[in-house]
Amino acid sequence: MSNSTSTKGHVIGYARVSSLDQDTARQLEALNQLGLDRLFEDKASGKDIQRPALKEAMAYARTGDTLVVHSLDRLARNLVDLLGIVEALTARGVSVRFLKENLVFNHSESNHFSALMLQMLGAFAQFERSLIRERQREGIALAKAAGAYSGRKHALNDEQVKELVSLDSANHGKNRKALADKFGISRTSLYRYLETT
């Protein structure tokens, strides 16, 4: 009977983009050079760790495996989630490797420097995002003060909303997709208009 601990672990790739119209080609080009045993891809925001492919990759990974990700921000968008994912994997004997930052994390006692680097890089990324949000808020405040910012415009004026409600009532709430198309709005917007009248 062979010793299962002597077998080489799998190299698992994980790639993520934020939306359906983006593609993972640049990430895959780097990942595929490693001779992956398995690849998982998500098209979802990094704000949420409940991503289907990430959950599948974490469930698939076993002791001795290495999860390879193109960069820190592809795995998580904040420090807490990043540390949580890496710690959950390394506690099970799975190494986590980030290509862009050239970092590898595992459960060995000699890995304190990498753990410190992960926390520092994650903290800097979080700080940078907070600066961007602060600049956006300041820009909006200045634009409002200058009278140049009115927020998001409503797609329909009051007269159109009345017509929308009247047509929906006449149709007894049926065929709302056609109604949304007629007014050039999404069904979500249509429901919002109907709920607020």
Rank of each mutant, 00 (worst) to 15 (best):
V69G: 04
R38S: 11
V69A: 03
Q136S: 10
D181E: 15
T197L: 05
E195T: 06
I185A: 07
S95Y: 00
R152A: 12
F40E: 05
L118I: 09
L79V: 15
K182G: 01
R192N: 03
F183M: 08
E109K: 11
D42I: 14
H70L: 01
L167H: 06
A145N: 01
N111Y: 11
R133N: 15
G84F: 00
G139I: 10
D181G: 02
P52L: 10
A59Q: 07
V11F: 03
F127R: 01
L194H: 06
G84A: 00
E128G: 09
Q50L: 04
L79I: 15
Y193R: 00
N157T: 08
N111Q: 15
A115H: 13
L39S: 03
T197Q: 08
R137C: 05
T197A: 13
R137E: 08
K162W: 04
T188Q: 14
F113E: 09
L36E: 06
S19V: 11
R192E: 02
R137F: 04
Q119W: 02
V80A: 04
L121T: 01
A15I: 09
L164A: 05
G9N: 06
R74A: 03
F105M: 14
N111M: 15
F127L: 02
M58F: 06
E41K: 08
L34T: 00
N106V: 03
M117N: 01
L54A: 07
R97C: 15
L54F: 09
E109N: 12
Y191R: 04
L103S: 02
P52W: 10
G151W: 02
L75F: 12
K100Q: 15
T188A: 15
R74K: 06
N106M: 01
S71E: 14
G184A: 08
R74H: 03
I85N: 10
H70Y: 14
N102L: 10
G46M: 12
K144G: 04
G151I: 07
H10P: 03
K47S: 13
E138K: 05
L20R: 13
I132T: 07
R129E: 12
A115F: 11
T196H: 08
T90A: 01
T63F: 08
V161M: 05
R62A: 13
L31Q: 08
Q126N: 15
G173F: 09
F105D: 12
A88K: 08
